[in-house]
Write a protein that binds this DNA or RNA. Structure first.
Lengths: 232, 232
DNA sequence: CGTCTACTTGACACGCATCAAAATTGGTGG
DNA sequence: CCACCAATTTTGATGCGTGTCAAGTAGACG
């Protein structure tokens, strides 16, 4: 996995003093890296971040290189939570991303906004566990598309009802590592969906949902939604 | 103290047959149910609980009955977190369990202990996502045994280094739903481990670890541990 | 225009699911 | 204590979905 390493200077953690609640003196949001910039590894980092723009993924590795992407974060989401002062996972950006440091992760423990974010994350993780453990390859890929369309749908700004076109920040390999599949299976599913008229893409990263209802159905979302709270 | 709102209607929908107790005007800690007592369903409940004794599992259902157990909770763990006032998952006890209501889930949002618990839960969920997405059946079952041995190891009380014998609160079906496998595969793995001298059991629920190191190795824990923080 | 990486597509293999049935365990009542 | 029935667990035979291996195509970038 080709990932540009952060230099020591780049990895330097932001000032410990800043807190989420107190207004920060300077705008610290910054543009990070090109594709696949490693932000920190498990256990190495102590700051909380917010994704301002772009896409960040959290992952874990097994001995032999097997990788699991445990979460995909779009604009607004927080990451960098620690347990016993150590980071839970490895974080890296996909494509160009802007992230905003929020200060020491441990100091914010009692912020209600943090608790809310944690619970929302937990919620997503549970839905994803169900996907990983109990869904077929087609359902997994369809679910991922629905999820990513919601995260990265452009045209959410202007009044127009948003043609469901979005930038797939993830590569096929990333998708595979997120969904517990292989690159080939992901590719086959996407192309089958394309043949069947569910989605379309000319460029492999520019997705467009043609038939949202059938895609939702393929994802097997109906009951899970009732089971869940409203998906945020 | 919020009284737990069990109605016959709510309790009448368990995913599997279970004898259900009528609710008692709750005080503090109490003994709940026999096997498989449904505590609440997704979206129905608003209280936080702590597991005092026994075992509680959280799960989600798909349309067609496929079930995923998203977390297995032993003594000390909290559950009942809400997102937008709705519960994240369905909770049920396995075997006899004592749980302790802690009050309205929303009111505790800024308690640092709650944040810590949430982060620990998140941590476990991420490790489990890696298991679900990237481990083989043998690795999954071995991991489960290691995890459950840690949770339910008896003899933790007396000074003795504890023969690794513990009560498997989960049925084979529960294990399967936790690990994303089928009953048959779980059973085959357990019996293979038994033949190979990794574990032993005469009664299907009474497990004993004979060779902790090899079991750990089979679970594929080495690197993941480096990746993780110390496992709590 | 050549090279590199990501993606696609095909042929094949294998791990785990599925189906079926026997063995064991648990619970209940005599 | 034993007889009986339901549920759980085990075991075997077979098949399918997805992984693996391999080759080919398309963009990106010099």
């Amino acid at each position: 996995m080709p990932e540009t390493q952060f230099t020591a200077a780049q990895l330097a953690v932001p000032p410990r003093t800043s807190s989420i609640r107190s207004p920060r003196p300077v705008v610290r949001s910054r543009i990070v890296g090109e594709n696949h910039t490693l932000l920190y590894e498990g256990g190495r980092n102590r700051s909380l971040y917010r994704v301002v723009d772009g896409c960040v993924v959290l992952s874990q590795l097994l001995d032999d290189g097997r990788r699991q992407i445990t979460d995909v974060l779009g604009p607004g989401r927080l990451f960098g939570f620690t347990v016993d002062g150590r980071n839970i996972a490895t974080a890296e950006t996909l494509s160009v991303a802007r992230i905003e440091p929020l200060g020491d992760a441990d100091l914010n423990a009692d912020d209600p906004a943090i608790a809310r974010e944690l619970k929302a994350t937990l919620h997503r993780m549970q839905a994803h566990a169900t996907l990983l453990g109990r869904k077929t390859a087609s359902e997994k890929v369809a679910s991922a598309l629905v999820e990513l369309a919601r995260l990265f749908n452009r045209a959410a700004r202007n009044g127009a009802p948003a043609r469901l076109s979005f930038h797939l920040h993830l590569t096929r390999a990333d998708l595979a590592d997120w969904l517990g599949l292989t690159v080939e299976t992901v590719s086959r599913c996407l192309n089958r969906f394309k043949r069947e008229g569910l989605i379309d893409f000319s460029h492999p990263k520019t997705m467009r949902v043609l038939d949202p209802e059938r895609l939702d159905a393929t994802a097997g979302f109906s009951r899970q939604r009732a089971n869940d709270a409203a998906r945020p």
